[in-house]
Amino acid sequence: MKTDWRERRHRWDTRYAPYAYIAPYFLLFAVFGLFPLLYTAWVSLQDRNLLDGDAATFIGVDNYVQLLTADPYFWNAMGNTLSLWLLTTVPQILFALGIAQLLNRRLRGRTFFRMGVLLPNITSVAAVTIIFAQLFGRDFGLINWVLELFGAGRIDWQAGTGSSHTAIAAMVVWRWTGYHALIFLASMQAIPTSVYEAARLDGATSWQQFWRITVPMLRPQIIFSTVIATAGNMRLLAEPLLFNPGAGAATGGSDRQFQTAALYLYEQGFAKFDFGYASAIAWLLLIATVAITGLSYLAARRIRTD
């Protein structure tokens, strides 16, 4: 009788224990992830002031209709988001591949360099942005100083659409390239050297080896990095916000030239106190992020592995 009970307990143990192990994550996710998500969906169906939730009225999908059909600033923000997504994600992956390839060689102080590329990632985003905003300063910025040295004119980085996107993309790329490079590097080291030896015997140049062997073998990591980078870069907030500090920060430039969707959400919610409208933006941004992430997953999957 007793053995029977112990045996049964053992069976339950192996069967259900894994669920108990992962339960804390899902409990926390339910509290801090799922609940806010659903609550936001509920709020997005209301006309609701941030400071006065009691006076909220249910208005159905009006917020969404307004956003999608009658709000040019929403589409402007979405356009900026997509532009910044492209300008950050693509260079990030390409530079990371290049850096990983360089770090994969025998060189002195390898560990030092490998840890070094991760340093930008562990610095605070606010600090990075403030420093970069100074580098890209109009009158006394280092970059304009260098441009002038080479005879090119000064650029008012914040004023233009292209110039401001370039500056913001530089911050993001600088912060995240090392992180992806380390992921690529780890997998590169797992590629058997015999493959390269065989290729070399067949007369493949190192450029061919890189594109025909390394990149295809890294396909899972490239997919992972693309998905992670896309999910992050679609909701840039701190960089555009801090790039232009001052009273107009939330508008992302004098003509909203670098206002991302997340920043527009922030402006509507916390400057204009329109909580319902901001929540609707949050949901549309989520949908767009999922869609773009799916697309980049499909794109990255097209890397040939034969």
């Binding site: 941030l50 400071l51 939730g53 500090p245 001052g246 009273a247 107009g248 920060a249 939330a250 922030y266 916390f270 400057a271 106190f273 909580f275």
Partner: peptide, 14 residues
Amino acid sequence: SYSDHHKNLAAHLA
């Protein structure tokens, strides 16, 4: 800063 302060206050009240 001026604008951060007031936006944070709004968030904290909300």
